[in-house]
Each structure stands twice: as structure tokens, then as C-alpha cells.
């Protein structure tokens, strides 16, 4: 465990906490894409298949449980909760996530480190996580108004993967034969997808103006 990875995990944890707090306290999910939340639930479900078979550390298991519980409860809140689901604008959140799931699944079948079910699922979850934010970014562009909790959520989500890249660089130089191109490339693609959001987020923060994404 290194500081970059711990900071990355904490940032990731913060992003789901911010989102859960927003939905739980103001009982609203306005501006949040259910598609992205469902994709994240799928990412964790396919990433953590080994949660009960391979014990790595208490920290690892607890964090996995937290991410699984939070992502599924956010989806539950947005789909079932009688008050929250009223604030979900489904006619704006129209990104068909099958267009993301199928290519990631096909890619994982061809590009993986070992052709086993668990390994393909794990690789699928990496590719899917890289693009899972797209429905959310599309929704932000459409609705154009970003309340600061949603802005913080997306920012923290992008920051966590950027910290993970630093972690991979650190581990590459400190651990022998630590080479994982699949992880690194999908993590880089994921972070680049946030790049334009970061640009507008920092500008709005610097000029102290409300965050607006160009149409």
C-alpha cells in the first residue's frame, strides 16, 4: 500500500459518500445519471467476484463491501425510493448503456491476461469503469446546470483514478515485474475522459463562477 493508492481509495470513498449524502439528505437525485450508477454497480459486481474466495486484507474486503453496498443502494434509491425517484429526469438520461457494456465485454474477451471467467470479468470491469462516467457527462452537458455536490462527485471520481495512475507509476518503479498494461491503459483512458470536465471545473472554481459546461 502506498500513499497514492490510499489517497485514491479515500477519494473514491469520498465520491460515493458525497453522492449518498446528497441523495439521502436532500432526497433528490437531480442531475445524477442512473445509467452511470447502474454501470458502476456492474463494475463492482464483476470486479469483486473474488471477495469471498481470495482474502487479501481486511482493508481490501471492507472497502469492497462498502463500494458494493453504496453503488447498489444508490441505484436502489434512484429506482425505488418514492421521493428520490421523482427527481430523476429519465427523459434526459437516455444514454443506452448497452452501447458501453457490449464493446467492453467483447474487448475483454479478446484482450485479457488469462482467458478464465474471473479474469475476463475482471478485465471487463476495468474497461467498463473507464467509460462508465460517459452517461453522467452527457447528462451534465444536457442539463447544463451542475449543482456543486454533483460537481464534487464527478471531480472526486476523476481524481481517484488520477491518483491510481501515480500509484501504478510508484509500484512500477518499486516492485519488480509489476507490469499491467491493461490496467494502466484503461485507467489512463478513464482519467482522460474527465480531462475536459476538470478543465471547466477548475476554471469555474478559479473565476468563482457557477460551473457551466459548453453545450
Amino acid at each position: 500500500m502506498n500513499i497514492f493508492r490510499l489517497a485514491g481509495d479515500m477519494t473514491h470513498l469520498m465520491s460515493v459518500i458525497v453522492l449518498l449524502l446528497k441523495i439521502h439528505t436532500i432526497k433528490s437525485c437531480a442531475g445524477i445519471s442512473l445509467k452511470t450508477q447502474e454501470l458502476y454497480a456492474l463494475v463492482f459486481a464483476t470486479r469483486y467476484l473474488d471477495i469471498f474466495t481470495d482474502f487479501i486484507s481486511l482493508y481490501n474486503t471492507i472497502m469492497k463491501l462498502i463500494f458494493l453496498a453504496s453503488s447498489f443502494s444508490i441505484v436502489w434509491y434512484m429506482r425505488q425510493h418514492k421521493i428520490v425517484r421523482r427527481s430523476y429526469d429519465k427523459d434526459q438520461d437516455t444514454f443506452r448503456h448497452l452501447f458501453l457494456i457490449l464493446p467492453c465485454l467483447l474487448l475483454a474477451l479478446f484482450i485479457n491476461e488469462k482467458f478464465t471467467f474471473k479474469e475476463v470479468m475482471w478485465t471487463f470491469s476495468l474497461f467498463l469503469e473507464a467509460v462508465a462516467i460517459l452517461p453522467q457527462l452527457v447528462l451534465l452537458q444536457r442539463t447544463r446546470n451542475i449543482d456543486n455536490l454533483t460537481g464534487q462527485y464527478v471531480f472526486l471520481l476523476g481524481a481517484y483514478r488520477a491518483l491510481y495512475i501515480l500509484n501504478w507509476i510508484y509500484r512500477y518503479f518499486t516492485e519488480p515485474h509489476y507490469v499491467h498494461w491493461i490496467t494502466w491503459i484503461s485507467g489512463l483512458v478513464q482519467t482522460l475522459l474527465y480531462a475536459d470536465f476538470f478543465y471547466y471545473y477548475f476554471n469555474s472554481w478559479k473565476n468563482n463562477v457557477k460551473l457551466q459546461l459548453p453545450a
Partner: peptide, 10 residues
């Protein structure tokens, strides 16, 4: 143990 190196990440 090598395969664990990335699998130990979240």
C-alpha cells in the same frame, strides 16, 4: 504471487 499484484487493488 505476481498475479496478486494488481488484484490486491480495488
Amino acid at each position: 504471487a505476481e498475479e496478486y499484484s494488481v488484484k490486491d487493488e480495488l
